[in-house]
Design a protein around this nucleic acid. Structure first.
Lengths: 182, 182
DNA sequence: ACTTACATGTAAGCGGTTACATGATTTG
DNA sequence: CAAATCATGTAACCGCTTACATGTAAGT
Protein backbone atom coordinates (compact mmCIF):
# COMPACT_ATOMS: atom_id res chain seq x y z
CA UNK A 1 0.00 0.00 0.00
CA UNK A 2 1.51 3.28 -1.12
CA UNK A 3 1.81 5.83 1.64
CA UNK A 4 -0.32 8.92 1.33
CA UNK A 5 0.88 12.39 2.15
CA UNK A 6 -1.96 13.46 4.42
CA UNK A 7 -0.53 16.90 5.03
CA UNK A 8 -1.26 17.74 1.41
CA UNK A 9 -4.91 17.01 2.06
CA UNK A 10 -4.95 18.97 5.29
CA UNK A 11 -3.90 22.05 3.34
CA UNK A 12 -6.28 21.25 0.51
CA UNK A 13 -9.08 20.96 3.05
CA UNK A 14 -8.20 24.27 4.64
CA UNK A 15 -8.58 25.93 1.25
CA UNK A 16 -12.27 24.99 1.47
CA UNK A 17 -12.59 27.14 4.59
CA UNK A 18 -12.03 30.87 4.35
CA UNK A 19 -8.24 30.37 4.38
CA UNK A 20 -6.62 31.81 1.26
CA UNK A 21 -2.96 32.39 2.08
CA UNK A 22 -0.15 30.34 3.55
CA UNK A 23 -0.16 32.65 6.51
CA UNK A 24 -3.89 32.16 7.14
CA UNK A 25 -3.50 28.39 6.87
CA UNK A 26 -0.77 28.42 9.46
CA UNK A 27 -2.95 30.44 11.82
CA UNK A 28 -5.89 28.08 11.37
CA UNK A 29 -3.69 25.06 12.07
CA UNK A 30 -2.26 26.61 15.22
CA UNK A 31 -5.71 27.49 16.48
CA UNK A 32 -7.91 24.59 15.48
CA UNK A 33 -5.94 21.62 14.21
CA UNK A 34 -3.00 21.80 16.58
CA UNK A 35 -4.10 18.87 18.76
CA UNK A 36 -4.17 16.45 15.84
CA UNK A 37 -2.17 18.05 13.03
CA UNK A 38 0.80 20.43 13.19
CA UNK A 39 2.61 21.95 10.24
CA UNK A 40 5.32 24.58 9.88
CA UNK A 41 5.77 27.21 7.19
CA UNK A 42 8.62 25.14 5.84
CA UNK A 43 6.01 22.68 4.68
CA UNK A 44 3.04 24.89 3.94
CA UNK A 45 4.58 27.05 1.24
CA UNK A 46 6.18 24.23 -0.77
CA UNK A 47 2.96 22.21 -0.50
CA UNK A 48 0.85 25.09 -1.79
CA UNK A 49 3.23 25.39 -4.71
CA UNK A 50 2.92 21.67 -5.41
CA UNK A 51 -0.86 21.86 -5.19
CA UNK A 52 -0.87 24.45 -7.96
CA UNK A 53 1.50 22.38 -10.08
CA UNK A 54 -0.82 19.41 -9.76
CA UNK A 55 -3.79 21.51 -10.80
CA UNK A 56 -5.55 21.14 -7.45
CA UNK A 57 -5.41 24.86 -6.67
CA UNK A 58 -4.87 28.18 -8.39
CA UNK A 59 -2.85 31.21 -7.26
CA UNK A 60 -3.32 34.90 -7.82
CA UNK A 61 -0.92 37.50 -6.55
CA UNK A 62 -2.51 40.58 -5.04
CA UNK A 63 -0.90 43.80 -3.91
CA UNK A 64 -2.36 45.27 -0.78
CA UNK A 65 -2.24 48.78 0.57
CA UNK A 66 -0.48 48.96 3.93
CA UNK A 67 0.24 45.24 3.96
CA UNK A 68 2.75 43.09 2.12
CA UNK A 69 1.82 41.38 -1.12
CA UNK A 70 0.08 38.09 -0.77
CA UNK A 71 -0.79 35.05 -2.81
CA UNK A 72 -4.37 33.95 -2.76
CA UNK A 73 -5.01 30.29 -3.28
CA UNK A 74 -8.28 28.77 -4.46
CA UNK A 75 -9.18 25.14 -4.72
CA UNK A 76 -10.08 23.90 -8.20
CA UNK A 77 -12.82 21.46 -9.23
CA UNK A 78 -10.16 18.80 -9.56
CA UNK A 79 -8.86 19.69 -6.11
CA UNK A 80 -12.32 19.27 -4.68
CA UNK A 81 -12.62 15.87 -6.29
CA UNK A 82 -9.26 14.78 -4.92
CA UNK A 83 -10.22 15.99 -1.44
CA UNK A 84 -13.48 14.06 -1.53
CA UNK A 85 -11.83 10.87 -2.71
CA UNK A 86 -9.30 11.15 0.11
CA UNK A 87 -12.10 11.69 2.64
CA UNK A 88 -13.77 8.58 1.30
CA UNK A 89 -10.62 6.48 1.58
CA UNK A 90 -10.31 4.12 4.50
CA UNK A 91 -8.02 4.90 7.39
CA UNK A 92 -5.31 2.30 7.61
CA UNK A 93 -3.22 3.07 10.68
CA UNK A 94 -4.17 4.31 14.07
CA UNK A 95 -1.80 6.98 15.38
CA UNK A 96 1.17 6.21 17.57
CA UNK A 97 2.76 8.84 19.63
CA UNK A 98 6.21 8.78 21.12
CA UNK A 99 5.66 9.26 24.79
CA UNK A 100 8.70 10.38 26.71
CA UNK A 101 7.01 10.05 30.10
CA UNK A 102 6.05 6.41 29.53
CA UNK A 103 9.53 5.68 28.23
CA UNK A 104 11.05 7.10 31.40
CA UNK A 105 8.57 5.26 33.60
CA UNK A 106 9.39 2.04 31.80
CA UNK A 107 12.95 2.36 33.10
CA UNK A 108 12.07 3.93 36.43
CA UNK A 109 13.59 1.10 38.41
CA UNK A 110 16.82 3.04 37.89
CA UNK A 111 15.36 6.16 39.41
CA UNK A 112 14.15 7.41 42.80
CA UNK A 113 10.36 6.96 43.06
CA UNK A 114 10.00 10.60 44.06
CA UNK A 115 11.44 11.73 40.74
CA UNK A 116 8.99 9.55 38.83
CA UNK A 117 6.12 11.04 40.80
CA UNK A 118 7.42 14.51 40.06
CA UNK A 119 7.46 13.77 36.32
CA UNK A 120 3.88 12.54 36.45
CA UNK A 121 2.72 15.58 38.42
CA UNK A 122 4.22 17.90 35.85
CA UNK A 123 2.62 15.87 33.06
CA UNK A 124 -0.74 16.14 34.80
CA UNK A 125 -0.35 19.90 35.12
CA UNK A 126 0.30 20.21 31.40
CA UNK A 127 -2.77 18.19 30.49
CA UNK A 128 -4.95 20.19 32.86
CA UNK A 129 -3.76 23.27 31.04
CA UNK A 130 -4.52 21.60 27.72
CA UNK A 131 -8.01 20.71 28.89
CA UNK A 132 -8.67 24.33 29.70
CA UNK A 133 -7.64 25.43 26.22
CA UNK A 134 -10.04 22.86 24.75
CA UNK A 135 -12.86 24.26 26.86
CA UNK A 136 -11.93 27.76 25.77
CA UNK A 137 -12.05 26.89 22.08
CA UNK A 138 -15.30 25.03 22.56
CA UNK A 139 -16.91 28.06 24.19
CA UNK A 140 -15.65 30.27 21.41
CA UNK A 141 -17.16 28.00 18.74
CA UNK A 142 -20.46 27.76 20.57
CA UNK A 143 -20.62 31.51 21.00
CA UNK A 144 -19.59 32.76 17.59
CA UNK A 145 -19.50 29.94 15.05
CA UNK A 146 -22.26 27.57 16.09
CA UNK A 147 -24.09 27.90 12.78
CA UNK A 148 -20.99 27.44 10.62
CA UNK A 149 -21.34 24.30 8.49
CA UNK A 150 -18.17 22.81 9.97
CA UNK A 151 -18.96 23.66 13.60
CA UNK A 152 -20.38 20.30 14.61
CA UNK A 153 -17.37 18.41 13.29
CA UNK A 154 -15.00 20.80 14.99
CA UNK A 155 -16.76 20.20 18.29
CA UNK A 156 -16.44 16.46 17.71
CA UNK A 157 -12.66 16.71 17.38
CA UNK A 158 -12.55 18.85 20.50
CA UNK A 159 -14.59 16.29 22.39
CA UNK A 160 -11.98 13.71 21.41
CA UNK A 161 -9.30 15.92 22.91
CA UNK A 162 -11.27 16.53 26.07
CA UNK A 163 -12.07 12.87 26.64
CA UNK A 164 -8.55 11.55 26.08
CA UNK A 165 -7.11 14.39 28.16
CA UNK A 166 -9.47 13.59 31.01
CA UNK A 167 -8.47 9.95 30.97
CA UNK A 168 -4.79 10.89 31.07
CA UNK A 169 -5.38 13.16 34.07
CA UNK A 170 -7.23 10.32 35.81
CA UNK A 171 -4.33 7.99 35.10
CA UNK A 172 -1.90 10.55 36.56
CA UNK A 173 -3.91 10.78 39.77
CA UNK A 174 -4.25 7.02 40.15
CA UNK A 175 -0.58 6.40 39.39
CA UNK A 176 0.69 9.06 41.77
CA UNK A 177 -1.49 7.60 44.50
CA UNK A 178 -0.20 4.11 43.84
CA UNK A 179 3.44 5.18 43.85
CA UNK A 180 3.04 7.30 46.96
CA UNK A 181 1.51 4.38 48.82
CA UNK A 182 4.85 2.57 48.63
CA UNK B 1 16.84 24.21 24.48
CA UNK B 2 18.83 21.60 22.62
CA UNK B 3 16.78 18.66 21.42
CA UNK B 4 17.54 15.28 22.94
CA UNK B 5 17.60 12.08 20.97
CA UNK B 6 15.35 9.98 23.19
CA UNK B 7 15.64 6.88 21.02
CA UNK B 8 19.26 6.59 22.07
CA UNK B 9 18.12 6.36 25.67
CA UNK B 10 15.39 3.89 24.87
CA UNK B 11 18.04 1.52 23.53
CA UNK B 12 20.41 2.28 26.39
CA UNK B 13 17.59 1.48 28.80
CA UNK B 14 16.83 -1.79 27.08
CA UNK B 15 20.44 -2.83 27.61
CA UNK B 16 19.66 -2.79 31.34
CA UNK B 17 17.06 -5.50 30.80
CA UNK B 18 18.13 -8.90 29.53
CA UNK B 19 18.35 -7.57 25.95
CA UNK B 20 21.85 -8.03 24.54
CA UNK B 21 21.51 -7.94 20.75
CA UNK B 22 19.94 -5.62 18.22
CA UNK B 23 17.55 -8.38 17.37
CA UNK B 24 16.47 -8.86 20.99
CA UNK B 25 15.99 -5.11 21.39
CA UNK B 26 13.73 -5.01 18.37
CA UNK B 27 11.65 -7.86 19.78
CA UNK B 28 11.30 -6.18 23.15
CA UNK B 29 10.21 -2.94 21.52
CA UNK B 30 7.61 -4.69 19.39
CA UNK B 31 6.22 -6.52 22.38
CA UNK B 32 6.36 -4.05 25.22
CA UNK B 33 7.18 -0.53 24.07
CA UNK B 34 5.20 -0.50 20.87
CA UNK B 35 2.35 1.63 22.21
CA UNK B 36 4.66 4.48 23.16
CA UNK B 37 7.93 3.94 21.29
CA UNK B 38 8.58 2.29 17.92
CA UNK B 39 11.97 1.76 16.29
CA UNK B 40 13.11 -0.07 13.17
CA UNK B 41 16.32 -1.99 12.58
CA UNK B 42 17.46 0.87 10.41
CA UNK B 43 17.82 2.86 13.58
CA UNK B 44 18.72 0.22 16.14
CA UNK B 45 21.96 -0.99 14.60
CA UNK B 46 23.47 2.43 13.86
CA UNK B 47 22.46 3.60 17.35
CA UNK B 48 24.12 0.62 19.02
CA UNK B 49 27.27 1.39 17.05
CA UNK B 50 27.13 5.01 18.19
CA UNK B 51 26.60 3.97 21.79
CA UNK B 52 29.84 1.98 21.69
CA UNK B 53 31.69 4.88 20.08
CA UNK B 54 30.52 7.14 22.88
CA UNK B 55 31.68 4.68 25.49
CA UNK B 56 28.18 4.04 26.81
CA UNK B 57 28.22 0.36 25.83
CA UNK B 58 30.64 -2.39 24.88
CA UNK B 59 30.38 -5.06 22.18
CA UNK B 60 31.64 -8.60 21.97
CA UNK B 61 31.17 -10.81 18.96
CA UNK B 62 30.17 -14.38 19.70
CA UNK B 63 29.89 -17.33 17.37
CA UNK B 64 26.99 -19.62 18.03
CA UNK B 65 26.41 -23.20 17.05
CA UNK B 66 23.39 -23.59 14.80
CA UNK B 67 22.65 -19.86 14.84
CA UNK B 68 24.26 -16.93 13.11
CA UNK B 69 26.96 -14.92 14.81
CA UNK B 70 25.76 -12.20 17.08
CA UNK B 71 27.05 -9.12 18.81
CA UNK B 72 26.41 -8.86 22.50
CA UNK B 73 26.08 -5.38 23.89
CA UNK B 74 26.61 -4.43 27.53
CA UNK B 75 26.01 -1.10 29.16
CA UNK B 76 29.05 0.54 30.77
CA UNK B 77 29.26 2.45 34.04
CA UNK B 78 29.29 5.65 32.03
CA UNK B 79 26.24 4.46 30.13
CA UNK B 80 24.43 3.83 33.37
CA UNK B 81 25.24 7.33 34.53
CA UNK B 82 23.99 8.85 31.30
CA UNK B 83 20.77 6.83 31.51
CA UNK B 84 20.16 7.98 35.07
CA UNK B 85 20.78 11.62 34.25
CA UNK B 86 18.34 11.36 31.34
CA UNK B 87 15.72 9.79 33.61
CA UNK B 88 16.20 12.65 36.00
CA UNK B 89 15.79 15.30 33.34
CA UNK B 90 12.48 17.06 33.08
CA UNK B 91 10.05 16.27 30.30
CA UNK B 92 9.54 19.33 28.15
CA UNK B 93 6.91 18.49 25.55
CA UNK B 94 3.79 16.45 25.75
CA UNK B 95 3.32 14.16 22.76
CA UNK B 96 1.33 15.13 19.71
CA UNK B 97 0.02 12.55 17.37
CA UNK B 98 -1.11 13.06 13.82
CA UNK B 99 -4.64 11.77 13.76
CA UNK B 100 -5.96 10.96 10.31
CA UNK B 101 -9.49 10.27 11.54
CA UNK B 102 -9.81 13.64 13.25
CA UNK B 103 -8.36 15.34 10.19
CA UNK B 104 -10.98 13.70 8.00
CA UNK B 105 -13.77 14.51 10.44
CA UNK B 106 -12.65 18.11 10.51
CA UNK B 107 -13.50 18.31 6.80
CA UNK B 108 -16.49 15.97 6.91
CA UNK B 109 -18.87 18.63 5.70
CA UNK B 110 -17.65 17.55 2.25
CA UNK B 111 -18.59 13.97 2.86
CA UNK B 112 -21.71 11.87 3.32
CA UNK B 113 -22.44 11.45 7.05
CA UNK B 114 -22.63 7.68 6.58
CA UNK B 115 -19.04 7.55 5.44
CA UNK B 116 -17.88 9.49 8.49
CA UNK B 117 -19.74 7.06 10.73
CA UNK B 118 -18.15 4.15 8.91
CA UNK B 119 -14.67 5.59 9.53
CA UNK B 120 -15.41 5.98 13.22
CA UNK B 121 -16.78 2.44 13.51
CA UNK B 122 -13.63 1.04 11.96
CA UNK B 123 -11.53 3.17 14.29
CA UNK B 124 -13.47 1.85 17.27
CA UNK B 125 -12.94 -1.71 16.12
CA UNK B 126 -9.19 -1.15 15.95
CA UNK B 127 -9.06 0.29 19.46
CA UNK B 128 -11.15 -2.54 20.86
CA UNK B 129 -8.59 -4.89 19.37
CA UNK B 130 -5.80 -2.83 20.87
CA UNK B 131 -7.48 -2.94 24.27
CA UNK B 132 -7.53 -6.71 24.11
CA UNK B 133 -3.82 -6.87 23.38
CA UNK B 134 -3.17 -4.66 26.41
CA UNK B 135 -5.21 -7.00 28.59
CA UNK B 136 -3.30 -9.94 27.17
CA UNK B 137 0.09 -8.43 27.96
CA UNK B 138 -1.10 -7.46 31.42
CA UNK B 139 -2.19 -11.00 32.18
CA UNK B 140 1.11 -12.32 30.92
CA UNK B 141 3.07 -9.98 33.19
CA UNK B 142 0.91 -10.79 36.18
CA UNK B 143 1.27 -14.50 35.55
CA UNK B 144 4.97 -14.83 34.79
CA UNK B 145 6.84 -11.63 35.61
CA UNK B 146 5.05 -10.15 38.59
CA UNK B 147 8.17 -10.22 40.76
CA UNK B 148 10.46 -8.73 38.11
CA UNK B 149 11.83 -5.39 39.34
CA UNK B 150 10.40 -3.56 36.34
CA UNK B 151 6.96 -5.22 36.44
CA UNK B 152 5.14 -2.50 38.34
CA UNK B 153 6.30 0.20 35.95
CA UNK B 154 5.38 -1.90 32.95
CA UNK B 155 1.89 -2.32 34.34
CA UNK B 156 1.67 1.44 34.82
CA UNK B 157 2.42 2.09 31.14
CA UNK B 158 -0.15 -0.55 30.19
CA UNK B 159 -2.73 1.12 32.41
CA UNK B 160 -2.09 4.33 30.50
CA UNK B 161 -2.81 2.52 27.26
CA UNK B 162 -5.95 0.88 28.63
CA UNK B 163 -7.37 4.11 30.02
CA UNK B 164 -6.77 6.25 26.94
CA UNK B 165 -8.02 3.44 24.69
CA UNK B 166 -11.20 3.15 26.74
CA UNK B 167 -11.85 6.87 26.48
CA UNK B 168 -11.38 6.73 22.71
CA UNK B 169 -13.86 3.86 22.43
CA UNK B 170 -16.35 5.85 24.54
CA UNK B 171 -15.87 8.84 22.25
CA UNK B 172 -16.51 6.64 19.21
CA UNK B 173 -19.77 5.36 20.67
CA UNK B 174 -21.00 8.82 21.66
CA UNK B 175 -20.03 10.35 18.32
CA UNK B 176 -21.65 7.61 16.24
CA UNK B 177 -24.82 8.02 18.26
CA UNK B 178 -24.81 11.76 17.77
CA UNK B 179 -24.23 11.52 14.03
CA UNK B 180 -26.82 8.80 13.58
CA UNK B 181 -29.43 10.91 15.33
CA UNK B 182 -29.29 13.40 12.48
C1' DA C 1 12.00 52.72 19.96
C1' DC C 2 10.08 48.23 20.18
C1' DT C 3 6.96 44.73 19.28
C1' DT C 4 3.29 42.55 16.89
C1' DA C 5 0.83 41.37 12.81
C1' DC C 6 1.09 40.53 8.16
C1' DA C 7 3.42 37.95 4.54
C1' DT C 8 6.67 34.58 1.75
C1' DG C 9 10.16 31.67 1.09
C1' DT C 10 14.64 28.39 1.23
C1' DA C 11 18.50 25.39 2.85
C1' DA C 12 20.38 22.44 6.11
C1' DG C 13 19.67 18.97 8.91
C1' DC C 14 17.32 15.29 11.73
C1' DG C 15 14.87 11.30 12.89
C1' DG C 16 13.02 7.77 10.94
C1' DT C 17 11.17 4.02 7.58
C1' DT C 18 11.47 0.92 3.67
C1' DA C 19 13.65 -1.86 0.74
C1' DC C 20 17.41 -4.39 -0.12
C1' DA C 21 21.23 -7.78 0.78
C1' DT C 22 22.80 -12.10 3.08
C1' DG C 23 22.56 -16.52 5.25
C1' DA C 24 22.06 -20.67 8.62
C1' DT C 25 18.83 -23.62 11.14
C1' DT C 26 14.54 -25.30 12.74
C1' DT C 27 9.75 -26.36 12.33
C1' DG C 28 5.63 -27.67 9.91
C1' DC D 1 9.89 -27.98 0.47
C1' DA D 2 8.48 -23.80 2.38
C1' DA D 3 8.20 -20.76 6.05
C1' DA D 4 9.63 -18.92 10.29
C1' DT D 5 13.28 -17.69 13.54
C1' DC D 6 17.58 -15.84 14.39
C1' DA D 7 20.83 -12.30 13.06
C1' DT D 8 23.22 -7.88 11.02
C1' DG D 9 23.60 -4.17 8.27
C1' DT D 10 23.17 -0.14 4.59
C1' DA D 11 21.41 3.23 1.12
C1' DA D 12 17.77 5.81 -0.56
C1' DC D 13 14.28 8.39 0.56
C1' DC D 14 10.59 11.05 3.18
C1' DG D 15 8.33 14.22 6.12
C1' DC D 16 9.20 17.69 8.76
C1' DT D 17 11.44 21.38 11.77
C1' DT D 18 14.63 25.05 12.52
C1' DA D 19 17.06 28.74 11.32
C1' DC D 20 17.73 32.11 8.25
C1' DA D 21 16.44 35.95 5.06
C1' DT D 22 13.41 40.05 3.99
C1' DG D 23 10.15 43.74 4.48
C1' DT D 24 5.99 47.04 5.71
C1' DA D 25 2.81 49.19 8.83
C1' DA D 26 0.27 49.74 12.98
C1' DG D 27 0.06 49.87 17.73
C1' DT D 28 2.32 50.51 22.47
Amino acid sequence: MAKVNHTKFAILGLLTTECRTGYAIKQMIDQSLTHFWKISYGQIYPTLKALVEEGLATVSETTQQGKPDKKEYHITAKGDEVLKSWLHQEITDIPTEKNELLLKLFFSRHQLPDKAIQHIKEYQRKYEEQYETYVGIEEMINATLSHAPDANFWLITLDYGKRTTTSIIEWCKATIEQLEAK
